[in-house]
């Protein structure tokens, strides 16, 4: 724990979970498609759905999708900025089932890409990415991480970790999930260092690998 966990973060109010955390969820969702989406449907669950207007949660989520950070003073104008950036969005209230009360689901599209991303704001501005395109995962946004969508074949995990090992990248945590045996699977690999784009490209070019998403830590140094 750092003194800046106590005196901080610097953020746009009013709530660390419903505003600052919501911005970070938007950042994580944006990272999945790597761009400001053309269209976003944002579904709000639980306490997010009940209190989003008073906490500016809707503005914060949109601001996050636009790439703003939790201390960006343009967050209150996020809707206007979205319009200027050509991003259309809908805010809907719904039920995501048995998930954390502060949760949202983003259905994003950009050109030919689309993604469905779910996450929760778990308190004090901390967030967890909980699902991408139907695969469940658990990523806090605090580490360098690769999301690797691949075919569930023998050797695919070894091939990916082999590339990382050859680049001297140390794996701190790893989880593999799949929807059904032999079909598409997802690896979440958290490493200790920044991952060079050449390494990301090398992993992307592996047989059985369909798509790779790189997450840099959300922590900023303000």
């Amino acid at each position: 724990m750092s003194v800046f966990d106590i005196i901080g973060p610097i953020m746009i109010g009013p709530s660390s979970s419903h505003t600052a955390g919501a911005v970070k969820l938007g950042n994580l969702a944006r990272n999945v498609i790597g761009h400001t989406p053309d269209h976003a449907e944002i579904l709000l669950h639980g306490s997010f759905a009940r209190t989003y207007k008073g906490h500016g949660t809707d503005l914060a989520l949109v601001a996050g999708l636009l790439g703003m950070r939790p201390d960006d003073e343009r967050i209150p104008q996020a809707f206007h900025i979205a319009a200027g950036s050509g991003m259309q969005f809908d805010i809907v209230e719904g039920d995501l089932g048995n998930v954390h009360p502060n949760s949202a689901r983003f259905s994003l599209s950009w050109q030919n890409t689309s993604a469905i991303v779910e996450g929760s704001s778990v308190g004090g501005g901390a967030v967890v990415l909980t699902a991408v395109d139907g695969f469940s995962l658990e990523y806090s946004g605090n580490s360098h991480a690769l999301l690797v969508f691949h075919l569930d074949r023998p050797g695919s995990v070894a091939a990916v970790t082999g590339v990382l090992a050859a680049s001297m990248l140390n794996i701190g945590a790893m989880r593999v999930s799949r929807r059904e045996k032999g079909s598409e699977a997802l690896m979440l690999i958290e490493v200790d260092q920044e991952i060079p784009s050449s390494v990301v490209a090398k992993v992307s070019s592996l047989e059985y690998v369909r798509r790779v998403i790189y997450f840099a830590p959300l922590e900023d140094d303000n």
Binding site: I6, G13, P14, S15, D71
Partner: peptide, 12 residues
């Protein structure tokens, strides 16, 4: 409350 920029200390 007005969505101004503050320092959480310890919370918002």
């Amino acid at each position: 409350a007005a969505m101004g920029k503050i320092v959480a200390a310890p919370t918002a």
